[in-house]
Design a binder for these strands. Structure first.
Lengths: 195, 195
DNA sequence: AGTGTAGGCCAACATCCGTTGACATATTGA
DNA sequence: TCAATATGTCAACGGATGTTGGCCTACACT
């Protein structure tokens, strides 16, 4: 359906994209220069413009992310938090695109917008049915999802962006061991004022 | 002791500093320009250089933060989490300097370093005695403090930087109601693999 | 074989940034 | 009062950045 005649420049396009992801992840939106990205990809800066229009569109292409959340309804309810924590940590550990988006979102409006869309279109729908089981009010889903986001993004911030020492060297299993119950409570605790 | 003869330019210095805080908070380190800061302060960009040396030192001066953590040993152990959550939220809500540092720390190495120092010198010492009560191993204190940081910073990120919708309009009391128990568990849960 | 077109590079423009130095004015101190 | 010093302005430099247009080359198609 969406098949497309392979172009001779596909390799270049891909090289630009991976170089862009690395630079954006390492330096954020404004410090990552098109010239540096082009140099990493081994081509001329002009090519970046030809293929992606401008810097903003390049970033948009480089930061296209699918969180690939699993179907939580198939997971035993009391393991949902742990499962989510593990998924996010694994995702972050193996895809620098996530760090790129996070770094950029702190200063770039477009990136922040992108992050909000990921939240609304990818996290909320997956989380909503789980929340619905523990809480009759369906309007609570976004708030619960936001709490999950805050803990996940905060951990990622400390571990991959700020590189806060105890968090960087902490084994992945220990991190998820701590975050799991937190996410579990955010999703399934019966009451807002849960104690 | 450290008394200092008031200089005639103190007003200008202060104007520069507040303008710098606003700009750094709103746009991050690289997008906040010395020219714009000077314009906000109603003076010439040269003054900024004369009084603060260069942009990096200006940021260092503008982002000097004291978290002003309360003495937690005087708080009933089971209220420590709630107390901490309230303190942080209040602090963030009334001092844009915190947001400035967070935004800048995402892309600026010096700002990130500053954040790590705040963590090590201000949060860890206050939190350590509380952790010691619940956990015999004193080496656990940094890890526990890091977990607290991750949740606090994550919430601040969502609420003040990303402006993730459910989090922005959520009343402060509801936020602390959710975060309190999380922080409480991070500090006083008996075991790393706490369930 | 020959032509159109896509891929690629080079030089340059316009702009903005941090930073510097020279110069004017006001205030302070003896 | 008068010199020294602090406060402030103006113009400009050197460098980096996003972006543009022109030109050359190599492939693709007929």
């Amino acid at each position: 359906m969406t098949e497309r005649k392979p172009r001779r420049s596909d390799a270049t396009r891909a090289a630009i994209l991976t170089a862009a992801r690395e630079r954006f992840a390492a330096e954020g939106y404004e410090r990552a220069t098109i010239r540096a990205i082009a140099a990493d990809a081994g081509i001329d800066p002009t090519m970046v413009m030809r293929y992606y229009g401008n810097k903003e569109k390049l970033f948009a292409a480089a930061a296209e992310i699918d969180i690939r959340l699993p179907d939580l309804t198939a997971v035993p309810r009391e393991q949902v938090g742990d499962r989510l924590a593990r998924h996010f940590l694994d995702r972050w550990e193996h895809d620098e695109t996530m760090a790129a988006l996070l770094r950029a979102a702190a200063t770039n409006g477009g990136a922040a917008q992108r992050m909000r869309e990921m939240f609304a279109h990818q996290l909320v729908p997956v989380v909503a049915p789980i929340v619905a089981e523990a809480c009759p009010d369906p309007a609570q889903a976004p708030a619960r999802a936001a709490l999950v986001s805050s803990q996940v993004l905060g951990a990622a911030l400390c571990r991959y962006v700020l590189r806060l020492e105890p968090f960087v060297t902490m084994p992945a299993g220990e991190v998820t061991g701590w975050l799991g119950p937190t996410l579990q409570r955010y999703l399934t605790a019966p009451d807002p004022a849960a104690r």
